[in-house]
Design a protein around this nucleic acid. Structure first.
Length: 527
DNA sequence: TACATACAC
DNA sequence: CATGGTGTATGTA
């Protein structure tokens, strides 16, 4: 896992590749087919009864699994299944027949572990947050909110000024990237459920990085512990990671991107944004034709397939990628009507930046699809922060950034490790030295130093704590990292830990500082 | 600034 | 038996 690819500086340690959204979100966005479609009824909002089984199961099932409303959805299940098979008859991973069973198995296997208990705690915290929001709502629900409607509608007008429909943005995502690369070398793996793994973690197989589409049919996904995957699919074939191979394949893919947008922005080894507006001026081809050409070239170069989304901005392009994966693409025309039609029926979970928790919160406020945001706008304006609210409004309007740029300014750098539970002073300080050394090495290779030092610890109970201190000057040496991190650790003792990490932020280049660690400020004159 | 959370990959 | 690592943003005190 040691990559020194400077090009990948900020990506080099990404282990888990893209989430398996196919398996997940099929059913959860389907309530829009139900009678709940249409304007969310503001009076239907009721206090959340914390259904531990339901929310916890979803939480345990992993980051990419969205809510399954067992009560409401059970009824819809056959219908949804029919629809999915009708619209996506051959897509692997869409086979969600056993989704409830998968979550059940994960739940049963996890039950009682420290991890589980911690998840339960986090889940309860979210329920508490939701109830607080709902009681806030109770107090305002009878207000007319006419002022708020006016404010929000003005806001919408302002946001409309941000809208730029003149760019053609493409989001490209390699299909089951690591698994597909492995299948090139070992074609027999294509027909068996297979995963790549990493993280020896504390024992056993470790955490899974990616799975092929055969494995996804069993509910096996990235970021799942190996032993649970084996429970779901005992015949699972587990393959070790070969990062150099993935980087090699990625370089070939990127050389194709380069031809269409020299400023393309890679998000990981297997994913990137391109702005093909300029390229389109050099050809008679339409945007989707160009993207077919790009995917074609990728295939010829690597024998790997990619999926793509084409739209007016990055958010929409990313959402479009999801529509026809794997090995497909979707073009959303840059017309207001088309954009609205595309966005409205989508589950809010499809909005990049809306995860499990936000989905739960919004669902509690009767916002299930992007369309629901609009009728609820005055209420949401009252209940959410300005930033969160504007974020939702932009999503609803289909407004997003069109800036595709590979420039990157790092804001922090860190090293963290998980290990078998440690509690003796000696062991803990030895670990800390080890981590400080790794961080010092990274700082060295990137020529960085910084003055805010953070310590992260995860107790054996999975409780996470972070402690930070801003120092008078910049540091980068192992001894300094170790010294200040030790001071922070000291105050936490005694503890039994399963993880330790050190982070350095408020960074600057070592070239910019003098011997005292004081940042040398460029003399700015007005002459 | 310090800390906890949420999210992406 | 057993649940990762790196980085960003945001809310809150």
């Amino acid at each position: 896992m040691d990559h020194h690819d400077e090009d990948d500086a900020h990506l080099s340690s990404q282990i888990v590749e893209e989430e398996d959204l196919l398996f997940d979100d099929g059913p959860s966005e389907q309530p829009s087919l139900d009678e709940t479609t249409g304007n969310a009824d503001i009076d239907k909002i009721t206090a959340q009864h914390s259904d531990i089984d339901e929310t916890l199961r979803v939480r345990l099932a992993g980051p990419s699994t969205s809510k399954v409303n067992y009560h409401a959805l059970q009824r819809l299940f056959t219908f949804i299944e029919f629809l999915i098979n009708y619209y996506f008859p051959i897509q692997a991973g869409m086979d969600s027949v056993d989704k409830a069973k998968v979550n059940e198995i994960i739940y049963e296997v996890s039950k009682g572990s420290s991890f589980f208990e911690n998840e339960r705690k986090k889940d309860n915290a979210v329920t508490g947050r939701i109830n607080a929001l709902l009681s806030k709502y109770e107090r305002i629900k009878n207000d007319v909110l006419s002022e708020e409607f006016i404010i929000v509608d003005n806001m919408i007008e302002e946001l409309e000024d941000e809208r730029d429909l003149n760019q053609c943005i493409v989001h490209i995502d390699m299909d089951a990237f690591y698994a597909s690369v492995e299948e090139l070398d070992q074609p027999h793996l294509k027909t068996v459920p297979m995963v790549s793994f990493a993280f020896q973690a504390v024992g056993g197989i470790g955490m899974l990085c990616t799975s092929n589409y055969e494995a996804r049919k069993f509910g096996v996904r990235s970021a799942m512990p190996g032993y649970i995957a084996l429970k779901l699919c005992p015949q699972l074939k587990i393959v070790p990671l070969n990062f150099s191979k993935y980087r090699e394949a990625s370089a070939k893919v990127r050389s194709v991107f380069e031809q269409y947008d020299p400023h393309y922005c890679p998000m990981s080894l297997d994913e990137a944004y391109l702005n093909i507006t300029e390229h389109l001026k050099t050809t008679n081809k339409s945007p989707p034709e160009v993207v077919v050409e790009i995917r074609d070239k990728i295939f010829k170069e690597t024998l790997l397939t990619a999926s793509a989304g084409i739209a007016a901005n990055k958010m929409l392009a990313k959402m479009c990628t999801d529509v026809n994966k794997p090995n497909g693409q979707f073009y959303l025309k840059s017309e207001l009507a088309d954009i609205q039609e595309f966005i409205n029926p989508l589950s809010i979970r499809k909005i990049p930046g809306v995860g499990r928790v936000t989905e739960r919160v919004l669902n509690a406020l009767n916002v299930n699809t992007c369309k629901d945001i609009y009728p609820q706008r005055a209420m949401l304006y009252k209940l959410l922060s300005d930033i969160s609210f504007k974020f939702l409004l932009r999503a609803h309007l289909g407004i997003g950034s069109t800036s595709v740029d590979s420039e990157y300014v790092r804001k922090s750098i860190s090293v963290e490790r998980t290990f078998r539970s440690l509690s003796s002073r000696t062991d803990l300080y030895f670990k800390l030295k080890d981590i400080a050394q790794k961080l010092a090495k990274d700082l060295e290779s990137k020529n960085l130093c910084g003055k805010t030092l953070g310590l992260k610890i995860k107790l054996t109970s999975f409780e996470v704590r972070t402690r930070a201190k801003t120092l008078p000057g910049n540091i980068y040496k192992q001894e300094d990292l170790e010294k200040y991190a030790s001071q922070l650790l000291e105050k936490e003792l005694p503890v039994s830990l399963r993880l330790m990490g050190i982070r350095l932020s408020s960074l600057c280049s070592r070239d910019e500082i003098d011997q005292k660690g004081v940042k040398r400020v460029g003399i700015c004159t007005i002459f």
